[in-house]
């Protein structure tokens, strides 16, 4: 059959129209069902005292009581917020710049740069739960590498003075690789003529990077910012495998989980915290979307 030139939707055969319709409707339904229904469901549940057993109709609407209880009388909540902020701070101020630094180094085509790239990116392939186990071998109080070498007796994962930082080191180890890869892709995309022009104008390496290359990578920066914020909000697996987010490792996500999925089953109460997380991350997602749409226009 000879190919005809496409002249708009009216020109499509009825089969094509069905296909197009399906391609639009099926993903929409999937998104509604898998993303929006649970999200809206959590928000609605957060106003009830549902215990997760039996029909939802048995739940009582109790207004904002869950939210009020979370912020006033639930002791792990504020430490959890604080830990999430520390998590964000460390990822943003230490891990992300370090990832950028590694990307810049690797972008210079040094010998064996592929090997370094692979080595640094490798942890990203591992799940955070696995990262937790790997570092357990290093941190363990009685058998761990650190204590074996130094002869110390610090319980890195158990002692609440250290465990947050120990966990952050493990999380950063993984985060650095991720950021490195994002920036490496960004750096490859920077037009080399820009650098040459800067060189001709007599700018040194440093000035070229901060004044020319970095601003050009603005879209990548926005992605990295959002990725970092979201990573720190959804930090969960690592601390969960360490000690279920108790004893100095409280995070909002672990509190949500221990309230909802545990034997406790305080679905409403946990949903209230989940809703707070949703709101915080929505702010950053909204900023990001606004930014990208502005770019495209």
């Amino acid at each position: 059959m000879a190919r005809r030139k496409y002249k708009g939707i009216d020109h499509l055969s009825s089969v094509d129209r069905v296909v197009v319709a399906l391609m639009v409707v099926v993903p929409t339904l999937l998104v509604l069902w898998l993303v929006w229904l649970p999200a809206v469901g959590s928000v609605l549940l957060s106003f009830t005292n549902w215990d997760g057993i039996g029909p939802i109709s048995s739940a009582k609407v109790i207004g904002l009581k869950n939210y009020h209880d979370v912020v006033t009388i639930y002791p792990p909540f504020w430490p959890a917020v604080q830990h999430n902020l520390i998590w964000l701070g460390v990822l943003f101020l230490v891990a992300t710049p370090f990832g950028l630094f590694l990307a810049v180094l690797l972008d210079r085509e040094l010998r064996g740069s592929r090997v370094y790239q692979t080595a640094i990116y490798l942890p990203v392939v591992l799940s955070l739960a696995l990262v937790g186990f790997i570092w357990q071998l290093i941190y363990s109080r009685d058998q761990g590498l650190i204590n074996q070498v130094t002869g110390g007796t610090i319980d890195w994962y158990g002692d609440q003075r250290y465990n947050l930082w120990a966990a952050l080191l493990a999380a950063s180890w993984r985060h650095v690789g991720y950021i490195m890869l994002l920036y490496l892709a960004g750096l490859k995309g920077v037009d080399p003529t820009l650098r040459e022009a800067a060189k001709v104008d007599g700018a040194n390496e440093r000035t070229t990077f901060f004044r020319v290359v970095f601003p050009v990578m603005a879209p990548i920066n926005a992605i990295v910012l959002v990725v970092t914020v979201i990573e720190s909000l959804r930090a969960f697996d690592l601390v969960w495998v360490i000690n279920k987010g108790r004893n100095g490792l409280e995070l909002i996500s672990t509190l949500v989980t221990s309230n909802i999925v545990g034997e406790a089953s305080r679905i409403g109460f946990g949903s209230a915290m989940a809703t707070m997380m949703l709101l915080i991350s929505s702010v950053f997602v909204a900023i990001y979307l606004r930014y990208t749409f502005k770019e495209q226009r």
């Binding site: 215990d51 002791p75 792990p76 108790r246 221990s258 309230n259 545990g262 034997e263 406790a264 089953s265 305080r266 109460f269």
Partner: peptide, 10 residues
């Protein structure tokens, strides 16, 4: 169980 696990353990 909700009291024991979410209040008393922490």
């Amino acid at each position: 169980p909700d009291f024991a696990s979410t209040v008393m353990i922490p």
